[in-house]
Design a protein around this nucleic acid. Sequence first.
DNA 1: GGGTTTGTTGCTCAATATACAACCGTGTTT
DNA 2: AAACACGGTTGTATATTGAGCAACAAACCC
Lengths: 247, 247
Amino acid sequence: MSEIQSLARGLKILNLLAESEDSVGITEIADYLGMDKSSISRVMQTLASYGYAEQDSITRRYRLGPQVVVLGQTLLERTPLRDQARPYLQQLVDRTGECAHLGVLAQGQVLYLDQVESSATLRVNTRIGTLAPLHCTALGKALLSYAPLDPPDQLAAFTTRTITNHEALRVHLDHARRQGYAVDDEEYNYDVRCVAAPVFDHARKVVGAIGISGPAGRMSLERIPGTAAIVCEVAKALSNRFSFRPR
Amino acid sequence: MSEIQSLARGLKILNLLAESEDSVGITEIADYLGMDKSSISRVMQTLASYGYAEQDSITRRYRLGPQVVVLGQTLLERTPLRDQARPYLQQLVDRTGECAHLGVLAQGQVLYLDQVESSATLRVNTRIGTLAPLHCTALGKALLSYAPLDPPDQLAAFTTRTITNHEALRVHLDHARRQGYAVDDEEYNYDVRCVAAPVFDHARKVVGAIGISGPAGRMSLERIPGTAAIVCEVAKALSNRFSFRPR
DNA sequence: GGGTTTGTTGCTCAATATACAACCGTGTTT
DNA sequence: AAACACGGTTGTATATTGAGCAACAAACCC
């Protein structure tokens, strides 16, 4: 598969700008890509002229430009799953008291498309637009358990509980598939447990997953089966909106 | 100013994908850019491999990819003005009963960065991430009245009330600057009136504008001065958060 | 004020993106 | 049902174009 190099460079730079907390200088980018700064300078001028990057008027360094907001919001608003899922996320929050999330598969990761916050003082907050690994999040595992997709080669460890062994993950996913929901037991963040279930469309294809996240104290292991039942029920109701028919 | 053509092509295509309601075929894109479809095919593969575009598995047509959401949300969350403005927008809604918006200058247009909805049954709803012209929106005119920026060459007409004459616009903006707020009197959408005021930073530079929008019935011309006073007051309060000092 | 760092511009040459054409898979038409 | 039309993908040669070098400009820091 041939790719347009100069376009790829531009996109890589956009990703870099997104990953960098602060603005980025042209020399840093050149080092990062192993290119000359003059080349990068021209790339940045192009990105800037289309609004994808923006140059700070005093520091002359670059950051993301407003056009990425235009694109991002356009796609968000255009995703039917998001609108459809909203009331079901709300239902999850009402019935469990924990924050609810909607995630989809994107680039081999989970992309958080929506969140409904709970009213609890201590609560889990995951920004919309965040990417997270598949193998250690409840949403990710829910997606993985039904998606025709191989888990990534390297299973990075985030806590001591993260599953880093491929065989163990396979067994874990099989189990999740059989029970209809996936659990993240402090595998990504300490003190956070999550439960999620997949959402299917009319063709029995996974289109996303919804789930809840809460502090480990409230989300005790004994409470998991009960909340999991709620998550499964709501996920099924959402699937039905896509005329999903279980076999 | 030299620009990287192949990168520019890719960005143009992203813009096209955003503008098209539905997914777009490769041939359409090729026609649009006056290029061969084989070239576009490769461009799309590149965009897709970085998650900026996505190919529909059945129709094989393209739409925006998840990565644009990642970038967009990243920038939104990173914009301090947005966090700062939130409570002030809320205050506008509470005190006027109309929807409140935050806008910034982007690419010679107004970019809507945030919205707080009112509880009225009939209300104005402008999506976050929308771009609108400067010369016929209250936010746009508020920005224009203080920004060191020329209005666009062509002043497009959206209603019969849109100001399409440069000299008339200059006079109008002078007036807006003197009174401290700008009004859109059904100049962009029929039955919608808006009032907005600029927000300044410590260097007395315009960083954005906040305002309210409502149906022409409730937003009667007699009511405008009263609501404008509120908008100005709140905008000033927000400016103060940026240690703005009036001269 | 000189030295250092950072971003921009001119210019040349080789890499690379483009168009042509052939190919392949779908859906449509008669 | 077979042929056809349509849309997307791949191979390849050539000419465009973008990369690097080097000089330049501007800001920053001792």
